[in-house]
Nucleic acid binder design. Structure first.
Length: 272
DNA sequence: AAAGATAACAACCGCCACCAC
DNA sequence: CGTGGTGGCGGTTGTTATCTT
């Protein structure tokens, strides 16, 4: 509709973030929170667009991020949630404290998808591909009951519509129950992770995998843990030898009393 | 050891929802 | 109510790392 992108492309850096930029961003957010993503780059002295800063922070710099590969249990839960929610990665990511939607999405696209195909399961429909593998161990994947087909996410490209959820740009067989991140009618309102199914039925593969607040599969160490030191949370930044850690006021955060850090990080956490 | 293929992941883009005015 | 700004989401691409030949 002709609206300009959030950032003009002139004078705005793109591509991989440098350690220096990371430090500036971390430093600024820890000190001030992110007041306004659009204004942040200027205030933090970054030649980036706000969107880019937000993404970098959320996907990579947040202190509460878990790193490393998804565990088997996490992977299985992704599969189960995907079967129910479709490609709504942010919703799926909500069940994985410390993981980002981007991370889960990437993991899905690069690993889980292939894994499922190997197992003879269509990663889109979660149905067996063509002839169902008779003797294959299907316990490790949650196949959806034929009477309760999974949400249709056969589209490879879709746009979201205010009124009817997804509008297909490639596939025209959209089921009415298609996932719609805006409508709470079909899934999130009725899907109870603990129950493990849309209507409370527990599919066998979900037993023992259901998200349980009391016994989360993933640890709960994501609650905006306050970094005690820079080395603890952003150790890779210290590897950069092009500039000193102290060049960007990092030291001030180190000496920042914990109350300040706590309030600022808490603020960041609360805002989202 | 080098080249090509593949996998993994960070980052970007475009669209949409929400909100303030 | 309409418009514009902003944040958030999902799809896609680009780059780097790893594996294979």
């Amino acid at each position: 509709m002709g609206r300009r992108s959030c950032c003009d492309k002139h004078g705005v850096r793109r591509g991989a973030w440098t350690a220096e930029e990371d430090k500036k961003l971390i430093n600024f957010i820890l000190s001030n929170g992110h007041i306004c993503w659009r204004a942040l780059p200027k205030l933090a002295g970054l030649c980036r667009c706000g969107k880019s800063c937000r993404l970098r922070w959320i996907n990579y710099l947040r202190p509460d991020l878990k790193r490393g590969l998804l565990s088997e249990a996490e992977e299985q839960l992704v599969i189960d949630l995907h079967a129910r929610l479709g490609n709504r990665w942010s919703k799926i990511a909500e069940s994985f404290p410390g993981r980002t939607d981007n991370e889960i999405k990437n993991h899905w696209n690069t690993r889980i998808k292939k894994k499922l195909v190997k197992m003879g399961i269509d990663p889109v429909t979660h149905e067996p591909i063509s002839k169902p593998p008779q003797d294959e161990d299907r316990s490790s994947s949650s196949l959806i009951d034929k009477n309760n087909p999974p949400p249709d996410h056969t589209r490879t490209s879709c746009s979201r519509s205010k009124t009817d959820g997804f509008t297909s740009t490639q596939s025209d067989h959209i089921s009415p129950a298609s996932p719609n991140r805006n409508s709470s009618s079909t899934d999130e309102s009725t899907f109870h992770p603990v129950d493990g199914n849309l209507d409370g039925r527990v599919d066998s593969s979900m037993k023992g995998l259901c998200w349980d607040e009391a016994n989360p599969i993933v640890d709960a160490s994501w609650n905006m843990q306050v970094p005690s030191t820079w080395e603890d949370n952003w150790p890779w930044l210290l590897d950069c030898e092009d500039f000193g850690v102290h060049d960007f006021g990092i030291d001030c955060s180190r000496s920042m009393d914990m109350e300040t850090v706590e309030s600022s990080t808490l603020e960041v956490g609360i805002r989202h």
